[in-house]
Design a protein around this nucleic acid. Structure first.
Length: 396
RNA sequence: CGGGGAUUAGCGCAGUGGUAGCGCGCUCGCUUUGGGAGCGAGAGGUCGGCAGUUCGACUCUGCCAUCCCCGACCA
């Protein structure tokens, strides 16, 4: 794509509201644009990164047998009354965005899909022979947060991958839960993120056991404790302050962290409330054993930048899997014609190319290239041509 | 929801009780071109909203809205 035609080119000055590093860089480089508190447009660069993240997640979810579906954003009150999360003591937190349609019927925007998916399950799953079953979607969620923070780190509308699994018994969900953890570890490692898997509270989602995937980062709102000698790690909220590892007695470390993902063993909480049963080999009815597993896509985008390898003083440095384009082609004075030809050839060969064809001084184009953070740069100029060709360099 | 800060051109900011300016960006022309270029000429504003005080309000007062930061919650 030609940078001269982009909607959302880089900014000389960053809006002062941005404090978090990833927020500043995403705004300055033209990846996102704010609409209101906690609501953003993803501009071409930002959306391409989101699609890359989506692809990594999709591959890994399909790799563990997840079937992709798309459930509605508009949800009806009745199902939320069934689960007890519409209002009252069991009300979901943050609360639902609720409103009425033209017939005065109460609706909500979905913040998560346990109700919808459990309803699907009770109608489509009837026998133990149908189990296990896992479905996932990548869909916009709406949460009426008290306070959105850190740009795209915590928003009121956000793209989330949510996976739901259904099992005949505890042993089977234990097995699948471990598979999901491995798939998540692959997702984060492919996105260049070194995360801690910590045990956590399950909040208003409910269930018996839950884990969070935390990225140590100063912008994080959470705190995690972990042991460097064994695999003990926990959300500080759950473990409380610790000096020594409860497993091996070694010193415990504490770090600020971004919650990247959260997974839950829901057990039969929802299936019992919503009467989602299956018939076992013995011919009697049992409630489905459920798990749910969520990842915030924009958080991965922001976290990749917040991580140590994701930026330097000049701008963003994308990992290969997330970069919005494979190559950043930059023409400088005297290199325009060759750059045009090269651009055509690169596009034709299937290389995703961002072509900075603007008539701008070298300083502007090079500074923007550093800011945008595409890992490979190809420079064509009079100087490079005199030296026999083009310059290829790596952002890191 | 509690506390703090803010709202003037696309972005960053000045400013005064007498009807608004700077830098960047944008448009046109010329010059320039290896690290955010130069000169010249332009376009762009109901000064967040509603009341009030006043001969006169962007400026003073009140209410409201919106945004940011800190706290409790989340992917």
């Amino acid at each position: 794509m030609r940078y001269s035609k982009f909607i959302g080119r880089s900014l000389r000055e960053v809006p002062k509201e941005a404090e978090a590093l990833s927020h500043r860089l995403l705004l300055k480089a033209g990846y996102i644009d704010p609409l209101m508190a906690g609501v953003y447009t993803f501009l071409p660069l930002g959306w391409r990164v989101m699609r890359k993240i989506e692809e990594v997640i999709r591959e890994e979810m399909e790799g563990i047998g997840g079937q992709e579906i798309l459930m509605p954003t508009l949800q009806k009150k009745e199902q939320w009354l069934e689960s007890g999360r519409w209002d009252g003591p069991g009300e979901i937190d943050p609360p639902l965005f609720k409103f009425k349609d033209r017939r005065d019927r109460e609706l909500a925007l979905g913040p998560t899909h346990e109700e919808i998916v459990t309803d699907l399950a009770r109608r489509f799953i009837s026998s133990y022979k149908d189990l296990p079953l896992a479905v996932f979607q990548i869909q916009n969620k709406f949460r009426n947060e008290m306070r959105p923070t850190g740009g795209v780190l915590r928003t009121r509308e956000f793209l989330m991958k949510d996976l739901y699994s259904f099992h005949a018994n505890e042993e089977d969900i234990d097995r699948y839960y471990r598979e999901v953890i491995k798939a998540y570890e692959r997702i984060f490692s492919r996105c260049g993120l070194k995360v801690l898997v910590v045990s956590a509270h399950s909040g208003t989602i409910g269930g018996s056991e839950s884990h969070e995937f935390m990225l140590p980062a100063t912008a994080g709102e959470d705190r995690a404790v972990y042991c460097e000698h064994c695999d003990f790690a926990s959300n500080l909220q759950k473990s409380g302050e610790l000096k020594n590892c409860p497993n091996c007695g070694q010193t415990i470390f504490t770090t600020a962290a971004i919650e990247m993902a959260h997974i839950f063993k829901l057990g039969t909480t929802y299936s019992e409330k919503m009467q989602a049963y299956f018939v076992g080999p013995d011919g009697s009815r049992h409630p489905l054993v459920m798990g749910c597993y969520g990842i915030g896509l924009a958080r991965i985008m922001a976290a990749a930048i917040e991580s140590k390898a994701g930026h330097d003083e000049r701008g963003i440095i994308w990992p290969k899997e997330l970069t919005p384009f494979d190559v950043h082609l930059v023409s400088l004075a005297g290199g325009e014609d060759v750059a045009e030809t090269l651009y055509g050839a690169m596009e034709k060969s299937g290389l995703e190319t961002l072509y900075d064809d603007r008539d701008e001084p070298a300083g502007v184009k090079l500074t923007d290239a550093d800011l945008i953070g595409i890992p490979v740069r190809v420079l064509v100029s009079k100087k490079s041509l005199e030296a026999g060709g083009v310059e290829v360099s790596s952002r890191s």
